[in-house]
Amino acid sequence: MDIYVCVGSSCHLKNSKAVIDKLNSRIKKENLEDKVALRGAFCMGKCSNQGVSVKVDNNVYSVTEENADDFFDKNILGIG
């Protein structure tokens, strides 16, 4: 599974780095390194979203440092 985190200029200002760090630490914690790849991507055309644009399986989510854990549980682990 590929998680694409937007690193365009708008999402960079919304702190895409923190979202990447958070998701990366979760991937490591759950030992999913072989199954989940974290990748950067450029503008998904959703710059007006509150959070950083993150795309999984063709769905774009708005993810912030605060809700990154919820996002991970729900859309990557499929729980909660």
Binding site: V7, G8, F42, C43, G45, K55
Partner: peptide, 18 residues
């Protein structure tokens, strides 16, 4: 130059890192 794609192109799943 600002990290966006040329107008009219939208992000598609298979080539996000293009």
């Amino acid at each position: 130059g600002m990290g966006r794609l040329p107008a009219g192109l939208h992000y598609s799943n298979e080539n996000g890192s293009q």
